[in-house]
Amino acid sequence: MSTPKPPKGYFNILYFASAGSFTSKNVEALPAPLPLSKLFATLEERYKGIKESVLDNSLVTINLTYVDLPEGEEDDASGEGPVIIQEGDEVAIIPPVSSG
């Protein structure tokens, strides 16, 4: 079940559940670095309609840690500087879960 390493200059993004159905894939490599604040816009550009259908109800992890998405284009609300997705990172789109 291990995901292949992304090529140099890319990060992996994993699509689970409805995100996987929408994109018709489980994983792909996207160019890094990418500011987290631009992630949804980047995906919407590639998969028209995904933001409203999937992303707006989903959470995001980077390297198995949940991250807060900056509202709109303003980042840096935390005072810690914008989060940048780096080469080699593993990002995941986490739709509402349904175990049990």
Binding site: K48, P96, S98, G100
Partner: peptide, 20 residues
């Protein structure tokens, strides 16, 4: 796909709505 959060039917992705 089900979602536990609200007991709703979850997100259906029809062929014609699928992103290109």
């Amino acid at each position: 796909w089900r979602a536990n959060r609200d007991g709703a039917a979850g997100v259906r992705v029809d062929e014609n709505k699928k992103g290109e």
